[in-house]
């Protein structure tokens, strides 16, 4: 399998909690053969349904962080002046770096006259290659309050692609993060199709429009699926109309059903249970696999 023949589907939403992970897990079960990638690296949940057996575990280091050596520091305060991220803290005599605020730009390190600032590599989390009942999976978790979620997402995607090439698997299915910022851009750019899962609410519509604009910005084809449609069917109509006028495709709808939570509790994908909502998701999968 060469890279250009591998299709990549990412499930996004804009708004959080619309059902991305439940739908991704169901697609993983329904797809004949796929590599799974969990790109929601700071609150990843796909592993709770797919119960991966970890085969490889890698430390994710990205960038550096500044650290003031209190013995070498002369207290001149230049670091405070040059830092644009409000990361240098002082009590008037002593200076230190707030690791949470430090962006790792290295400007203080370079300009410190006493060369008193260390700049070690920053460990931001870890990524793993695992085996699941639905095929191989690449997943990660970002360290608590860590930076560089976009780079970790890119790492997950690169590893998923390498795995697809190696194992001759023609499809990658990614569970994306919410929002439209850095990790979403890292999940979205260059994929074959983004399926945007939304819910029929004013927030769902608003957030959908921003994700669709982002996908247009990166020239990624999109399809929209309204989940929990029966919470507000008029809003579901409005959302589908908005999707079409933004040039996105639409799929059939998925109903709101408490059995989705029941599946979570049993660590199953929704389609592994015999329910009406499972049929809805099967229908969506048939349509999405046609679009890929």
């Amino acid at each position: 399998m060469i890279k250009k023949h591998i299709r990549e589907l990412v499930i996004l939403s804009g708004k959080g909690g619309t059902g991305k992970t439940s739908i991704t897990a169901s697609f993983a079960v329904l797809a004949d053969k796929a590599v799974l990638a969990d790109c929601d690296v700071d609150a990843s949940d796909l592993h709770l349904l797919l119960k991966p057996e970890v085969e490889q575990r890698h430390v994710f280091s990205s960038g550096h962080e500044a650290n003031i050596d209190q013995i070498e520091c002369t207290g001149c305060g230049l670091c405070l002046d040059v830092c644009r991220f409000d990361a240098v803290r002082t009590n008037g005599t002593k200076y230190w770096i707030d690791p949470v605020a430090c962006e790792g730009c290295g400007v203080c390190v370079r300009f410190c006259a006493a060369e008193a600032i260390d700049f070690p590599e920053r460990h931001c989390g870890e990524w793993m290659i695992s085996d699941t009942r639905c095929g191989p999976m690449v997943h990660a978790h970002l360290g608590i309050a860590a930076e560089n979620s976009g780079k970790l997402v890119s790492t997950v995607r690169e590893q998923a692609l390498a795995l697809a090439v190696k194992k001759q698997i023609p499809l990658i299915i990614s569970d994306g993060p919410p929002g439209i910022g850095c990790p979403v851009i890292a999940s979205l750019s260059g994929v074959s199709l983004a399926l945007v899962v939304t819910e029929p609410s004013v927030s769902g519509l608003h957030d959908l429009q921003r994700v669709l604009a982002l996908a247009r910005h990166f020239s990624v084809p999109t399809a929209v699926c309204v989940n929990k449609w029966n919470i507000n069917s008029q809003q579901a109509d409005r959302i589908e109309a908005a999707a079409r006028s933004a040039g996105a495709g639409t799929t059939s709808r998925i109903r709101y059903d408490r059995s989705v939570t029941e599946a979570q509790l049993q660590q199953k994908a929704v389609v592994e249970m015999d329910t009406a909502v499972a049929d809805d998701i099967r229908q969506v999968w048939r349509q999405v696999s046609q679009m890929l």
Binding site: G16, G17, D42, A43, V100, A101, L142, I144, A145, A146, E147, S149, P177, P178, G179, G181, P183
Partner: peptide
């Protein structure tokens, strides 16, 4: 705040 635990959440909580 935004969802998650990464830098945008920290920027809000700080």
């Amino acid at each position: 705040a935004p969802p998650g635990t990464s830098c945008s959440v920290v920027a809000t909580l700080r």
